[in-house]
């Protein structure tokens, strides 16, 4: 296809992505190195007879407005916002680094810094949910594949539900059931034997609940992909393995899993991307007090009366850099594939 034809075909979608993805990124980067102007303060001396004179500090509204109009971006602060206490907290990090004796001690101290807490939760979520999803998906696929064929369609139908409903709604449904007055909550209370047992009260339990939600939400995807892969499993290989006396476990390990390996890579990649975005369950579970992810951290800054755009932008930029690092092995591989395919 000639360059010019390509351009015309690609123009609408390219323009949409340029205007609403690429330019906002530029804007986010810019905002993250500018801070809002502080209000201009003036000291007014007011004297009352008999009492004496007092100086009051008030905000000079006109001067503040003029300054904001003159430089709407705010004042240039460089990387200050990245290094402040709300983000990378360089000073605090240095102190903790110097003062803590052990790694455990250090991580505990770092846990008090909001940004590191969000980062820790996001990475934990990615590291726990991704492998669990793959294993659970594979087991479900193997089990469903051995069912009668009328049951298979039904199972796929119901399995798709946790994945297809909006994450907020899925997490709300689970959250209501896990409420201390809900069915799962009551069961947990009965099992723990403690009437005050509650998800909302404990950070650890809340993390576990969020991780369980993550696996519940993502397992159907892995299941469907692996199930489709099982349909193309060459039966002669399995037969050959049986003739060689392979046990069922060995057949799975040496024939089925290697056959599904490319799909495992695919699912892992998609899961890595999606789990890094984890956001909605934290809102649905109302878990902001116990857990923040990078996304919910940004959402928090953007919400409310005071929109802290600079702070949100700085976190956004760090998140985007994180995505790029996470994807870099994939990019290298895709490049090689592309070179090979041409």
């Amino acid at each position: 296809m000639r360059h010019k034809t390509f351009l015309w075909f690609f123009l609408p979608t390219g323009l949409a992505m340029l205007l609403f993805i690429a330019l906002p990124i530029v804007s986010v980067v810019t905002q993250s190195i500018f801070a809002p102007h502080p209000a201009v303060l003036i000291e007014v001396e007011s004297c009352t007879p008999l009492v004496g004179c007092t100086t009051e500090t008030t905000i000079d509204q006109d001067a503040t407005a003029a300054l904001r109009a003159e430089k709407p971006l705010g004042r240039f602060v460089g990387l200050d916002i990245y290094f402040d206490r709300g983000h990378l907290a360089v000073t605090e990090f240095g102190e903790i680094w110097a003062s803590s004796d052990s790694w455990g001690d250090m991580f505990k101290e770092l846990g008090n810094l909001p940004f590191y807490r969000a980062m820790a939760f996001t990475l934990t979520f990615v590291a726990v949910v991704t492998p669990l999803t793959i294993v659970l998906g594979l087991v479900i696929a193997l089990a469903v594949n051995s069912l009668h064929r009328h049951l298979k369609g039904l199972m796929i139908f119901f399995s798709l539900l946790p994945m297809i409903v909006p994450p907020i709604i899925g997490s709300l449904i689970l959250f209501w059931m896990a409420d201390s007055r809900g069915i799962i909550g009551s069961a947990l209370i009965a099992m723990a034997g403690d009437p005050d047992f509650s998800l909302k009260a404990s950070t650890g339990l809340m993390w576990i609940a969020l991780l369980v939600y993550g696996v519940w939400h993502a397992a159907p995807f892995a299941f469907v992909v692996f199930y489709a892969g099982l349909q193309t499993l060459p039966s002669d290989q399995l037969e050959a393995a049986q003739i060689d006396g392979a046990t069922r476990w060995q057949q799975v390990k040496f024939v089925v899993v290697p056959h599904l390996m490319p799909l495992v890579t695919f699912v892992a990649l998609i899961q890595l991307m999606d789990n890094f975005k984890v956001f909605e369950p934290i809102i649905g579970f109302n878990a902001q007090a116990h857990a923040h992810s990078l996304s919910s951290f940004i959402f928090n800054d953007l919400g409310g009366e005071t929109r802290q755009l600079s702070s949100a932008s700085a976190t956004s930029v760090i998140t985007i850099i994180g995505v790029a690092i996470l994807l870099s092995p994939v990019l290298v591989r895709t490049w090689r594939d592309f070179k090979g395919a041409r």
């Binding site: 609403f20 906002p24 956001f279 996304s295 953007l302 932008s313 998140t319 995505v323 994807l327």
Partner: peptide
């Protein structure tokens, strides 16, 4: 590849740029 990176970015990271 650019599309893949855009796909992997959490949409919330762009919101600060829209507002």
């Amino acid at each position: 590849i650019t599309a893949l990176i855009f796909r992997a970015m959490p949409p919330i990271t762009l919101v600060a740029g829209y507002l």
